[in-house]
């Protein structure tokens, strides 16, 4: 019975978010691009957290899949000779395929590494990709590539891509919400808590990690095309494979909100996006310095994130509102996890 009430509340919440998301571009017509980037940031933080928060593997190279998506869609639009929306759809499909294939190929090689080796290997991957695309003439080299022009006024274009990115972000959220309640999600958490024990229990840890990475890559690849269309220009270092901006922001947003939770990355993305817009508006020239300082401050002084802090302050809230599916299915395990989180932060 409680489950039914929860489902009702959830449906109402989802409807509210969708309605707000649909209305917002009309209420704030001058902020449509920022809104579109907000949805992108939500998607970034959520996909990073699949491996980073839930599995404990911190990747600095997830931006590679996003970059592949940007380039694949722009290339399909340039060379396939299809109409705008057909080529966009085809390009996004190809992007997702390429990104998943890249994760499937790279995953077995580098996901066997532990801890810092994995983090630094992925850091290398992102930079290699940026340099290779910047030196590859077919994709425009260092000067980048221009995707097809949107057939319509700029305002309509921004609204269209804002809706596309919103749909992708909500799709990501819904898929991950479902996934974290399944056995697969439990395996990911087991890997994070103690990988050797998980392996000793007979779980195929590397396979699960690769599958999780492929899932993240799928959504990141899909998001590349719409962002390329929205910005109207794909630069290898500043947009597609922007390791020191997007690549680090993903990590920062998930940490800021509370990594290893479903809502944490969303909250982190919202807080970070607003902060970043304020920095860019008020700190002419010094915004990137402030951002570097923000990373250090958050990581050193606030590593548990907003949700981790809340969980330590008000543990009783979290049996009500968070991860209802998982809590209902395995109440004992949830309590234990909550206690452990509590001990860790205390």
């Amino acid at each position: 019975m409680k489950r039914g009430a929860n489902a009702c509340r959830l449906a109402a919440l989802a409807a509210l978010v969708v309605a707000l998301g649909l209305v917002a571009p009309w209420v704030f017509p001058q902020a449509v691009t920022q809104l579109a980037f907000f949805w992108l940031m939500v998607l970034f933080a959520l996909t990073w957290d699949v491996l980073g928060g839930q599995t404990g593997y911190n990747s600095f190279g997830n931006v590679v899949f996003f970059g592949l998506g940007c380039y694949a869609t722009a290339l399909v639009q340039r060379d396939a000779g299809l109409s705008y929306f057909t080529s966009l759809a085809a390009g996004m499909g190809l992007s997702a395929l390429l990104a998943v294939a890249a994760a499937a190929l790279l995953g077995p090689l580098i996901l066997g590494m532990r801890g810092q080796y994995f983090a630094i290997a992925t850091l290398g991957l992102g930079t290699v990709a940026a340099d290779l695309f910047a030196g590859w003439d077919y994709v425009g080299g260092g000067s980048g590539i221009v995707p097809a022009l949107y057939p319509g006024p700029i305002g309509e274009r921004n609204r269209f891509f804002c809706y596309v990115l919103m749909a992708l972000a909500l799709l990501t959220f819904a898929s991950l919400r479902w996934l974290y309640g399944t056995r697969f999600g439990a395996v990911l958490n087991a890997i994070r808590d103690d990988e050797d024990k998980a392996e000793a229990m007979g779980l195929r840890t590397t396979r699960h990690k690769v599958a999780a990475w492929m899932l993240a890559a799928f959504f990141l690849g899909l998001a590349g095309g719409p962002v390329a269309g929205l910005v109207g220009f794909v630069d290898p270092r500043e947009l597609a494979f922007a390791g020191t901006s997007f690549g680090v922001w993903m990590v920062l947003m998930a940490v800021l909100g509370g990594k290893g939770t479903l809502w944490g990355p969303v909250i982190g993305a919202a807080v970070f996006h607003v902060t970043q817009e304020l920095f860019w508006t008020y700190l002419l020239g010094w915004q990137r310095v402030a951002l570097g300082l923000l990373i250090v401050v958050i990581v050193v002084f606030f590593p548990q994130g907003v949700l981790g802090w809340l969980r330590a302050q008000r543990p009783q809230w979290f049996h009500e509102t968070l991860d209802e599916g998982a809590a209902a299915a395995q109440p004992a395990q949830r309590d234990e996890a909550g206690m452990r989180a509590h001990e860790r932060t205390a």
Binding site: N58, Q116, T244, V248, V251, V289, G292, L293, I295, V296
Partner: peptide, 18 residues
């Protein structure tokens, strides 16, 4: 280790931008 890698990465970005 993740905390120290990310913290020094933040320092690296900070110093580079400064």
């Amino acid at each position: 280790l993740f905390v120290s890698v990310l913290a020094t990465f933040g320092l690296s970005i900070l110093l580079q931008q400064l």
